[in-house]
Simulated assay, not measured.
Amino acid sequence: MATLRKRNGKWQVQVRRHGFPVQSKSFVSKADATEWARTIERLHDRQELGPDRKTLKAITLSDLVTRYRDEVVPRKKGSAIETILLNRFLRYTICQKTLYELSTADFAAFRDQRLKEPKLRSDKPITPKSLKRELSPLSHMFRHALVEWEIPLRNPLEGLKLKVTDNKRERRLRSGELERLLEATKNGKNRLVAPIILFALETAMRRGEILSIQFRHVDFERRSLVIPESKSGYSRVIPLTARAVAMLAAFRTEDVPEAAFRPSQSQP
């Protein structure tokens, strides 16, 4: 915000922006002072002026991650997983750095260290693709801090290189695997695990989509199911087979007869 005042025959102007040092200058004419103030404000808007060192030196990466975890993450769909990831990240020494000291090189060192460690909740080494997913909340955190909290920083993850290999695969159950899978569910306490597995095979729906099904989104006559918000963020309509409709009808009445969920002859 610019402030103008006339003093000793000259126009003095100050431009203040949270997180940036105060810019001030004196002019003979008010028009020149106003134009200079507008120029400085445009430079601020384009982030072409350096941030206030004092502001960034007062905030550590740990402070930023903790605030993001406590204020923003609880409102997100994947809050439970993101909280676990952020809590783990807070244990690394990089979080002791101030935002003024933090650079892409620091995250490159963290990347190299993390790639030597196992996945979360696994003994297998983490892959670049998995690490990219772990860093995604942090990248969003930096953007949020700049826009919503007006902390004048740049995202140090933007220049970080991660060689990600597309290792997606198409896998179908082999002969006998479905029977062994269903047999294993008998050792569990939840009797719905087996029906959900068969429903997933019948519809190719994701686990989260199946668990969030609401019967008001099911059209039994037209044999279709609406997913209001899929993984991509958009809604989609899933056509249902007669067998899938029968399964949903059984769930709807809270009566899950064994016969309704036996593997069909068409299943591998």
Rank of each mutant, 00 (worst) to 15 (best):
L162R: 10
L153Q: 00
Q23G: 01
H144I: 02
L115T: 11
R42F: 05
L240F: 03
L56G: 01
T241H: 09
F251R: 02
L248I: 13
Y234E: 15
C95R: 02
F20V: 03
V73S: 03
R53A: 12
P118T: 14
N167A: 14
M141H: 08
I94Q: 04
F107V: 03
F251A: 03
I210M: 10
A145N: 05
V256C: 14
S29I: 02
E71C: 00
L160Q: 06
P74V: 00
R16W: 08
K10A: 02
A184T: 05
G188C: 10
K163R: 08
T104D: 10
E82K: 07
L173F: 15
A204L: 06
T203S: 08
T55L: 07
V164C: 08
Y100G: 01
T60H: 04
A37M: 10
E221H: 14
R236T: 09
A244M: 06
A109I: 12
A80C: 04
R38K: 15
A249G: 06
H144N: 08
V256T: 15
T127D: 09
S29G: 02
T55Q: 07
V65L: 10
S266E: 08
T34D: 13
K25L: 09
L198C: 09
T185K: 10
F199K: 06
Q267Y: 11
L115N: 10
S62A: 14
A33W: 04
V72P: 02
V15Q: 08
V73N: 03
R223M: 12
I81Y: 11
H44N: 11
E117W: 02
P195C: 01
S266R: 13
K57H: 11
K132G: 11
E101D: 13
S175G: 08
E258R: 12
I227C: 07
K168M: 01
S230H: 07
L153R: 00
R114T: 08
L115R: 11
R7C: 01
K10L: 09
L157E: 06
A2S: 12
L192A: 05
L56T: 01
Y100F: 13
R171P: 06
L178K: 11
R91H: 02
D32P: 02
H44I: 12
L178V: 13
